Amino acid sequence: MNLIKSFNNNVALVEDASGTEWVVLGNGVGFGKEKGSLINEEKIKKKFIAASRRPFVDMIEEIPISIFETTEKMIQTAEAVIGATLNQQLFLALADHVHHAVKRVHENVDYPHTNRWELQKLYPKEHQAAVEAIRVVYDTSDIILPKSEETFLTYHFVNAQGRSAQLSETMKMTEAINQVITVIEYHYELELNEQSLNYLRLLTHLRYFLLRQIHGENLDQNDMDDDLIEMIKAKYQKAFGCANKIARILNKHYSWDITQNEKIYLTLHINRLLL
């Protein structure tokens, strides 16, 4: 690999024999090097394809090396907590995020920390990794990131696993869960107990229910006996009315057609939530 540009001693833009450009990181990888000189590949700890050079260059030149070092520790900690290797593309995205999060702390700017409780229940390992990542920032830089960062970092760690739950999908699901919970609370004129076991069971059901909607995979309409459906609708009229309301709102916001079976299962979870 040949050097194109050295950002500092440990970060450089290089080109391989095929002409592909990479951002490489490693102790001393860019130290004392001039443009066109060979890079000692044994020093490279991480590398990322620079698909669009200008955004990479602009971003990397702005980020202090201390942020890169902190980001590396955050990812190592997250991988240990989650028990999985995270996608390499996470490194630069997370470094950029942490850099701006630290700037927001200095400027006393924060975002509302919505969805934190739902994410904690939907993705407990990733949420715990986010909590630990905030601790890493504190340990390495004496900066306390706000609680809102638990949400943003959880999204990053979910997305970085290459799972079906991509970042946009996760955000849509947590947004929809908040809407469902709000409808239930308005319908029954009460505030749900977020610490209860039935609340956790509802969130678990909603996670798979909403994933099915996102992927267009509703439960088979013929899976449940018609007599049983009518019995549940009659026995749990208020819960079924709430499920119908939820179905109408989800259809309005996301154009999802909620089947009768989905509404029945939702009815049972809503009713159990209020026992």
Rank of each mutant, 00 (worst) to 15 (best):
W22I: 03
A176P: 02
G216P: 08
W117M: 13
S18C: 09
D110E: 15
N271I: 07
Y199S: 04
D58F: 07
E262W: 03
V109P: 03
V137H: 02
A160L: 05
K5S: 07
Q128Y: 00
L13S: 07
A78D: 03
L202V: 10
Q179P: 00
A50I: 09
S66D: 14
R207K: 15
S66C: 06
L192R: 01
S66I: 12
E194C: 04
A176R: 01
L92V: 11
T77V: 15
H113Q: 12
K5L: 13
L206P: 04
E21T: 13
T114G: 10
K33C: 10
I63C: 06
L94S: 04
A93C: 06
A95Y: 05
A165Y: 08
N40A: 11
L86K: 03
E62Q: 13
V57I: 12
H205K: 04
H127Y: 13
F56R: 03
K125N: 09
F157E: 05
I44M: 06
V29Y: 03
I258F: 03
I60N: 03
D110V: 15
V11H: 08
K5I: 10
N87T: 09
K238E: 07
R135E: 12
N40C: 07
R272K: 13
S148V: 11
G162F: 10
A243E: 09
T140N: 13
G26P: 01
I264H: 01
L273R: 03
D58C: 02
F7E: 08
G241F: 04
S66Q: 12
P55I: 09
K43W: 04
G19I: 08
I232R: 00
R212Y: 05
A160S: 11
L153S: 01
E21W: 01
H215C: 01
L38M: 09
N8F: 08
E169F: 11
A12L: 09
T70H: 01
M173K: 12
R163V: 14
K45I: 13
Q237N: 02
N40V: 09
G19Q: 07
N108T: 14
K252V: 00
E132P: 02
L25G: 00
K45G: 07
N271A: 14
I143H: 00
K233N: 04
V24G: 00
L206T: 04
L94R: 02
V81I: 15
V81Q: 07
K73N: 15
T114K: 13
M74E: 05
L192F: 01
T71P: 08
K33H: 11
N218C: 08
H100G: 09
N108P: 09
S168N: 11
K263V: 08
A165Q: 12
L13C: 08
T182M: 08
P146F: 05
Q213K: 13
G28N: 05
A93N: 13
Y186E: 14
E132I: 02
A133C: 10
T77I: 13
Q120D: 06
L211F: 14
N2M: 11
V137I: 12
R163L: 14
E118N: 13
D96Y: 07
F56E: 02
T259L: 02
F56W: 07
Q260P: 02
A129C: 03
R207N: 11
Q120H: 07
L167Q: 10
D227W: 00
K47E: 15
E21I: 06
D227F: 09
A78G: 03
G19E: 05
A243M: 09
Y111H: 13
D110A: 15
E230Y: 06
K233F: 04
K103F: 06
